[in-house]
Design a protein around this nucleic acid. Structure first.
Lengths: 233, 233
DNA sequence: AACAAACGAGAGCACTGCTCTTGATTTGTG
DNA sequence: CACAAATCAAGAGCAGTGCTCTCGTTTGTT
């Protein structure tokens, strides 16, 4: 965020401050009306400035949206890391539950920001390179948990064998953590990852409408079941 | 779709034809540029008519988008039902695989339409009542498969016990199929549902970028694993 | 044949993202 | 300190959008 080494001149200070104000106003507008309705002119009106002035700080609407995307990823990443850190590190089942519920709590509190992150990508496909560092934080938390569990000798329930093709397909993922994830942990971990975000998206995007009555109860059940399948319970 | 009992007058015929032409043009534009960029004026230009004339057929852009949504749900539903019907009804494992791969093939062939269905909802929350009949077709195919499997004596791998709250939360879903789904099938079925669409969305929306190399191999593996957890393999 | 409903085309409004020009302010340097 | 260069805010303007309204024309019904 503030990687610039303390702005000295008055102009640099004003610029940093206005950049923040634009992001705050845009973030508020995003939370209310969603990414599609985010308007540069509305942000300018909110801040009492000309719309053309905003373009001195963000070259385009997509660039502003990308900045909001990165901020949202960082916000969620922080929430997950805080929840994870609040639990005894050896209590793997509780860490799993803490991470899952932190993600869901964050998503339900600001569904539009969740939609920006995990819904349909809005601006073409937003430049991945800039967003990746922020985006992988929550993934990293999950992978670290899986790695810790594997190192502690936890074994998920058995899986179907991996073919060579499938082994190769998961190579970069398995090599991400310090003790490399074995086949079983890779499969169960990815399945849990997909089920977790799949359930979240299906819930928040309205696909459980009239099919499931109590979303809280169902999610808690899903997290418990995934924990059991991961060998954590 | 064509529930009106055969248009008799020339005007009614022309209206039906133009409605179809608008939907086709809009669908093509949707497939190319995505839901956000769908423009009523562009559709009108494509058909060589005034933009105001389009509003005689669809009262708003959102209404046009909703019609496209329903068509896409029906299209996907048909693809799933065809794939399911092409497999020996007693071969439950093959039916499961056929349904899963039909969904993915459809989604990869037209990612923008998939995003319209399972990505962030675009127009507020599109009137659910109109879209529900088309939307539940793919869900029905899955639930029917689960119900058939349960009736055939297939047992998924064991699950954590359901509390009364969780039982109640799933009531409408379990009552949907003819032989009511038992607790184990409900849990494993919903988990498979979430994992299936979760994997699909994460893949299509770019969240596996540089983490998984071969999406085909990984998806095939996921489907196999879910089949095993469902007791089908 | 007469009347009403439906229709297509066009103008127009309010809004958007974005660019360009103009004039004021701040900056680093001779 | 002075001055040139960089930076900035503001406004006008362009092309595009969704949508409404009006105005003749065409079509269906009686």
């Amino acid at each position: 965020m503030s990687d610039s080494p303390a702005p000295r001149t008055a102009r640099a200070i004003a610029r940093a401050e206005l950049t923040r104000a634009i992001l705050d106003s845009a973030s508020a507008q995003l939370a209310e009306t969603g990414p599609a309705a985010l308007s540069v002119r509305a942000v300018a009106r909110d801040l009492g400035m000309a719309s053309s002035a905003v373009y001195r700080y963000f070259p385009s609407r997509d660039a502003l949206l990308t900045a909001l995307l990165i901020e949202a990823y960082d916000d969620l990443g922080t929430a997950v890391e805080v929840a994870d850190a609040a639990v005894e590190r050896a209590d793997l089942a509780r860490r799993w539950a803490a991470i899952c519920h932190a993600i869901r709590d964050w998503a339900r509190a600001q569904p539009h920001r969740y939609a920006l992150l995990y819904g349909s990508p809005v601006p073409g496909y937003a430049a991945p390179d800039d967003t990746v560092p922020a985006a992988i934080r929550v993934t990293t938390a999950l992978l670290t948990l899986f790695s810790d569990a594997q190192a502690a000798g936890v074994r998920p329930v058995t899986t179907v064998p991996l073919t060579d093709d499938e082994q190769a397909a998961l190579a970069p993922l398995r090599a991400f953590t310090d003790p490399t994830l074995d086949a079983t942990w890779s499969i169960r971990g990815l399945l849990a990852w997909a089920a977790l975000f799949g359930n979240l998206s299906l819930e928040l995007f309205g696909h459980m409408y009239r099919g499931i009555l109590d979303y809280d109860a169902h999610f808690a059940q899903l997290v418990d079941q995934l924990a059991a399948d991961l060998g954590l319970a």
